[in-house]
Write a protein that binds this DNA or RNA. Structure first.
Lengths: 189, 189
DNA sequence: TGCTCCTGCCTAATAGGTATAGGCAAACCA
DNA sequence: TGGTTTGCCTATACCTATTAGGCAGGAGCA
């Protein structure tokens, strides 16, 4: 009777994989127990409850995504940085839809403040330094970028652009270009 | 023993109210049965299953929202129409968060094609007529508007802008202005 | 080597949600 | 008035979440 060696970390990772395969909603304690070939209550030694599991996956995804974005943006500026930033989000969402959905989980303020979510905000601001916007315009712009990218990605994942031309990639490029020129114009105002 | 007189329509309406009060996720057959003081299986004469209920609420919300948007946009053009369009979405989401969430439910292609979703797309295109964009720019722009508005509203509902200045309303206005000027610039290209 | 404790997974049990099968009585209709 | 239909009911089965408490095997100590 070898023990499977469950840990919160392994469960979180497995939960993230399960989310990508079956959707974030399909991430249940039961499904995870099946995956480890273990009885359901065994997981409660490692996880407070199913919400705890979801939060752990969310935090994991936020970290992973922040790392990717940071990597993509490193050494770039201006339009290049903006495009890299945008593409990093979109690619992560396409590659890991379940984790991306997890990253959108609403966290309570303290948890959010201690999460990689703050790095995301910092990186967005860093991108905008290339466009020298004053406050409060910079904040407005951060919110706009977050809205567009999140909105586009979530519509695309929901299949909103599947059944019509032009391809999602074209619209994406057009939008990134548009945002770039918008921010450049705004900065000269 | 007077019968409560359940109908799919009344159940859908009650489900929409329940969604606004307790969240779309809280809309269950059980909760709805409690609300009508009726046993759970009674609802299955009127609804195929719980997914059917959710879809009905989604279709209802799409209709209601399309009506509001149509009303808001009527008789306006250009920046005015864009702002009215945007505000109609945002106000609906703030007033009826559960219905708004319902309206974002992923529908299968046939259902979507028969839903008020197509009116939404048509109205977005109508707004853009004021900016004379060619294809494929018009489609890109429709997607961008959908992304920004949906993204902003969903971030705002998730509480993303609660704990920091400036107020969500200011950013919203700034974004609508920005989109207007962006579209005006794009049209002259 | 043997004892003890503790950890980690187990069984048992409760509660709530989803869904189906089949019953019964009120309401409708001829 | 009697038959049929309709609409809500009971009974039942299964799934998920969660808690309580049990047991065995490995770690540490004598």
């Amino acid at each position: 009777m070898e023990r499977p060696g469950l840990t919160p970390e392994r469960l979180t990772r497995a939960g993230a994989e399960l989310a990508d395969e079956a959707g974030f909603d399909a991430v249940t304690i039961s499904a995870l127990a099946r995956r480890f070939d273990v009885k359901v209550p065994s997981l409660y030694s490692h996880l407070r409850n199913s919400q705890d599991l979801r939060i752990r996956i969310a935090l994991f995804a936020l970290e992973e995504l922040a790392d990717r974005v940071a990597d993509a943006v490193a050494g770039r500026a201006g339009r290049d940085a903006l495009a890299a930033f945008a593409d990093a989000y979109r690619e992560y969402a396409r590659e890991h839809p379940g984790r991306y959905a997890a990253a959108r989980l609403r966290l309570d303020p303290e948890t959010a403040a201690a999460s990689a979510g703050v790095r995301h905000a910092q990186m967005a601001r860093a991108i905008l330094r290339g466009y020298d916007l004053d406050e409060p315009a910079a904040t407005h712009a951060v919110r706009m970028l977050g809205s567009v990218f999140h909105g586009y990605v979530s519509l695309e994942l929901a299949g909103g652009f599947e059944h019509s031309a032009p391809a999602a990639q074209e619209s994406w490029d057009w939008i990134v270009d548009s945002l770039d020129s918008l921010l450049r114009n705004r900065s000269t105002t």
